[in-house]
């Protein structure tokens, strides 16, 4: 079969059909965690390496459980235990990983494009578990799964508002690409320093006022704000940030009555979300863990098992010799 390796490097360019297949497969695997024996033999004899150059216990654990539930041999290599610290290049490290003949490498890396780089060096499927400020497609798929479970309407009728540090957020990017592909309306909200105008070109609506951004929204996604951004003058103080962008009850009241609120990580209470909202009935943060394992199982299965009927994955576009990428128009 000339399918080659299939990767999930980002949600940009992944078709609505592929996303739907992944969500459907994940949906049918959610029950596995309720079984007496939580193990399926589908990936017996396959090797999955979790290569984490940036720390993330939650994502790594989720992938580990997913791989093990499918009977794959799961190896975890984190940046401290790998030799990257000793000055080995990323390429060297990648080749050493390749020597273990993995069927799939799950990579988390602080540099944008790292997953793509790995896909060019190693001959196996690559899953991007977060690369710099670029994409975090499995988190976004998980968010999509959660949204789909809670909202029965068609994607095109959904309004999703993403609030916070958009420009530095790989979660925001992946969600934006995925949601737009599925047809949802995406509103991005944040101060102009964290929300470049260019996002309009990817089909997003831009708001500097969180109140109008959440008006009649079905889903609100709150991004975590990093303290470091203050030092680079993206906003003056966390206090002032919270004054304009903290999601409080008054703002939530402007959204649809059945709005759900997603948050990808530990909440800064009173900064991104007020306590009353965090503890309120809208938050679906906790239900995301079981979905995460099912989603990652679905992905591992769909990528590792080559099938004409399965997903295509995000294609690795080899630079065409004559296409001359980036060539400016002339004449």
């Amino acid at each position: 079969m000339a399918l080659g390796n299939r990767h999930l490097l980002g949600l940009e360019g992944v078709s609505a059909e592929d996303i739907t297949v992944l969500l459907d497969t994940a949906e049918s695997l959610v029950e596995v965690s309720r079984r007496e024996v939580k193990k399926l033999p589908a990936l017996r004899g396959k090797t999955v390496i979790n290569f984490f150059v940036e720390n993330s216990t939650r994502t790594r654990t989720s992938f580990e459980i997913a791989a093990k539930r499918l009977s794959a041999d799961a190896i975890s290599i984190s940046s401290s235990s790998s030799s990257m610290a000793k000055g080995e290049t990323f390429e060297d490290t990648a080749r050493n990983l390749a020597a273990m003949s993995p069927d799939c490498i799950v990579v988390r890396h602080p540099a944008s494009g790292a997953a793509r780089f790995l896909a060019g060096v190693v001959d196996c499927s690559i899953i991007n578990a977060g690369d710099g400020s670029h994409e975090h497609p499995t988190q976004a798929l998980l968010d999509l799964l959660t949204i789909r479970q809670r909202k029965k309407c068609a994607w095109k009728d959904l309004v999703v508002t993403i609030v916070g540090d958009i420009v530095h957020s790989r979660v925001a990017r992946s969600n934006l690409f995925g949601l737009r592909t599925l047809g949802a309306t995406v509103r991005l909200a944040g101060p102009p320093t964290l929300l470049p105008e260019e996002f309009r070109e990817f089909g997003a609506e831009l708001y500097y006022d969180i109140g109008s951004a959440v008006q009649d929204a079905d889903v609100i996604m709150m991004l975590r704000i990093q303290h470091e951004r203050m030092a680079s003058n993206y906003f003056p103080t966390l206090n002032e940030y919270a004054r304009y962008f903290c999601l409080n009850a008054e703002k939530v009241a402007r959204a649809k009555p059945d709005v759900i609120i997603l948050h990808p990580g530990p909440i800064n209470r009173g900064i991104e979300i007020s306590s009353e909202v965090a503890d309120g009935p809208y938050s679906v943060i906790m239900s995301q863990v079981a979905n995460g394992v099912a989603l990652r199982m679905a992905l591992l299965y769909q990528l590792i098992i080559p099938g004409a009927d399965g997903i295509r994955g995000s294609a690795l576009v080899e630079p065409a010799v004559t296409a001359a990428p980036g060539r400016a128009r002339i004449e």
């Binding site: 297949v21 459907d24 497969t25 049918s28 695997l29 399926l40 033999p41 589908a42 499918l70 299965y301 769909q302 098992i305 080559p306 099938g307 004409a308 009927d309 399965g310 997903i311």
Partner: peptide
């Protein structure tokens, strides 16, 4: 689907 010993031969399926 995920128990078949010929999963690799038949390939992944979109329908589960």
């Amino acid at each position: 689907t995920l128990y078949r010993d010929d999963a690799g031969r038949l390939g992944a399926t979109a329908h589960m």
